[in-house]
């Protein structure tokens, strides 16, 4: 059984079909890249998966349970985590408190009290090397630190599936390599399925993905193991006929 399954999902905004009849499967612990140019429906697809929008058609199933119309706050405790394209820290709270919030309301939330959550936050802060910023308000971090904190916050949720929205956009290539390998390592250790969404075929992200899904104007055009996907003529076409960087 797949961890996450979408069947013929369609989401419209008025006359605009943002996601058109998309079906896909994500397995436990899998690293999947979702690629597509601006406006191809990637963020909407994420919003359908974590419940910000409900689709007009189709079903979303998580661990065999139909969650198509489950509100987002009930999906997080099931194990669906998310990071945003532009980081959304709880600005006045400290880095430690931000990350503790993740633990507090995540998959283990019910059995964790505030102290337990803060302990988990401390462990994660050490792992992601944010120790120097632990007691700073999250709003005072640099953009890269905010991204790191947001990833740490979603890892604290102990998710089974982590949706990463343009997680690496605007970062220095060296930082990207470091970050991606860190995420990959944690995901392997804790058996987290990662769905990373990128606008361009980024070597660092796509290179590590086991599977690549390409969206174009709301429809899925390719869903294949990474190597095959990148050689697919349709993908080349979507990106204006340029061959993907290797």
């Amino acid at each position: 059984m797949a961890l996450l399954e979408l069947k013929n999902v369609t989401k419209r905004f008025g006359g605009l079909v943002a996601v058109n009849q998309v079906s896909l499967e994500i397995d436990k612990g899998e690293f999947v890249g979702i690629v597509g140019p601006n406006g191809s429906g990637k963020t909407t697809l994420f919003n359908v998966i974590n419940g910000v929008f409900f689709p007009e058609e189709g079903t979303v199933t998580f661990e065999g349970r139909d969650i198509t119309r489950l509100p987002p706050f009930k999906r997080a405790p099931l194990g669906i985590g998310r990071t945003f394209q532009i980081p959304r820290p709880f600005a006045s709270a400290t880095v430690r408190e931000n990350i503790a919030v993740g633990a507090m309301f995540g998959t283990q939330g019910r059995s964790l009290n505030v102290d337990g959550s803060l302990q988990i936050a401390d462990q994660i802060i050490e792992r992601v090397d944010l120790t120097a910023h632990r007691d700073k308000p999250a709003g005072a971090l640099t953009p890269v630190e905010k991204k790191l904190m947001e990833i740490a916050r979603s890892l604290a949720m102990k998710p089974k599936l982590l949706l990463m929205d343009e997680a690496m956009a605007g970062m220095h290539p060296n930082d990207i390599d470091q970050m991606v390998s860190f995420i990959k390592r944690v995901a392997e250790e804790e058996n987290i399925a990662i769905v990373a969404m990128v606008e361009h075929i980024m070597r660092a992200v796509v290179g590590l993905a086991e599977k690549v899904i390409v969206l174009h104007q709301g429809s899925k055009i390719v869903d294949a193991p990474t190597k095959e996907a990148l050689e697919d003529p349709k993908v080349v076409e979507v990106y204006l006929g340029h061959a993907p960087e290797d």
């Binding site: 706050f73 997080a76 709880f90 408190e97 919030v101 949720m157």
Partner: peptide, 22 residues
């Protein structure tokens, strides 16, 4: 937890929802 949830929703209600906060 009430206080943490309230801080989160005060700062960013949508992000708080996605983080599992009712």
């Amino acid at each position: 937890k009430v206080g943490y949830a309230l801080t989160a929703l005060r700062e960013d209600e949508d992000a708080a929802k996605v983080m599992g906060i009712n």
